[in-house]
Design a binder for these strands. Structure first.
Length: 308
DNA sequence: TCCGTAACGGTTGAC
DNA sequence: GCGTCAACCGTTACG
């Protein structure tokens, strides 16, 4: 039984803070995968970060499967399977054979490749379509008229859904195959992959650019907010939770507003802390790939290796 | 002791 | 604006 925590949600058995129903901050998720890649056992990661071992297991499993450390899309509804195209085919089948059964229509949708097993309408759905949308064959369907409907994709899944089909979780990144290993850096250029994230610059730029057109991430909390919050640094002096600043965690939870502009973060190859991070704790705690290069300045490890 | 996973209570967002 | 539904979340407990 988690202990209620007045400000930051609840405290788990390990003493870590979590918010029920909400994903862990990306910083923690990243650390979990980083530590796993360093060969640290999940049980040790769990204890060190004060995250339940079940959660560690889940995050690592997901990373193995998808190459992404990000949580899935929360909320929303499943897309409709009865797209205009499907309805059209149902109507065609019915028109060609008025005595056709719904289950036969379902089989034909599969056989003709109109749908696959994941998005084929149920028999009851087909019956409903026959009853409501088709009814009398002499009447045009609602969307058939002088003004055609807007085109819809054959697979109407909302792009925010990473996995097009239930039970068929595939990586949404191009060129990604199923097999993956935690201990090996990803070879593909995944915006979510740790191998890319470990290039902290890309990490930060994507964070700062979240929400801009073409960004890999929507401008929401799920997308790297915790490292660009004005509240991020001060919490170190207040005692971290899970090795992560409380305020950073809180910032993650509350969807704070504006990340610093990229230009304020990156100065050429140097990572320059935004002013709002003044007095920051050592970022290398969160990002071991960063090397402190002086007051408020960090180098990414790759930059360091390049110049040494 | 470690790990995978089902159950649980919770949040979220499309409809 | 609100309720419903079905996604997802992390924790906990169990084997």
């Amino acid at each position: 039984m988690p202990i209620p925590c007045q400000t930051y949600g609840e405290v788990n058995q390990l003493g870590g803070v979590f918010v029920n129903g909400r994903p862990l901050p990306n910083t923690i998720r990243l650390r979990i995968v980083e530590l796993a890649q360093l060969g640290i056992r999940p049980c040790d990661i769990s204890r060190q970060l004060r995250v339940s071992h079940g959660c560690v297991s889940k995050i690592l499993a997901r990373y193995n499967e998808t190459g992404s450390i990000l949580p899935g899309a929360i909320g929303g509804s499943k897309p409709r399977v009865t797209t205009p195209n499907v309805v059209k085919h149902i109507r065609d089948y019915k028109h060609g054979d008025p005595g056709i059964f719904a289950w036969e229509i379902r089989d034909r949708l599969l056989a003709d490749g109109v749908c696959d097993k994941y998005n084929v309408p149920s028999v009851s759905s087909i019956s409903r379509i026959l009853r409501n949308k088709i009814g009398s064959l002499s009447q045009p369907a609602p969307y058939e008229g002088s003004k055609p409907p807007l085109p819809q994709p054959a697979l109407p899944y909302n792009p925010i859904y990473q996995y097009p089909y239930p039970g068929a979780k595939v990586n949404s990144h191009p060129g990604v195959t199923g097999a993956a290993h935690v201990s090996l850096p990803r070879a593909w250029p995944s915006a979510h992959s740790v191998s890319n994230i470990l290039g902290i610059r890309a990490f930060m730029e994507q964070s700062a650019l979240a929400g801009t057109e073409g960004s890999a991430y929507p401008p929401k909390m799920e997308d790297w907010p915790s490292v660009n919050r004005a509240t991020f640094p001060a919490a170190a002096a207040q005692g971290g939770v899970n090795g992560i600043d409380k305020l950073a965690l809180e910032a993650d939870i509350k969807y704070p507003q504006q990340p610093p502009p990229p230009s304020s973060i990156w100065n050429s190859s140097r990572f320059v802390l935004p002013e709002c991070w003044a007095g920051s704790s050592d970022l290398s705690l969160l990002f071991p790939q960063c090397l402190k290069a002086g007051k408020g300045k960090y180098f990414s490890l790759s930059v360091f290796n390049h110049f040494r």
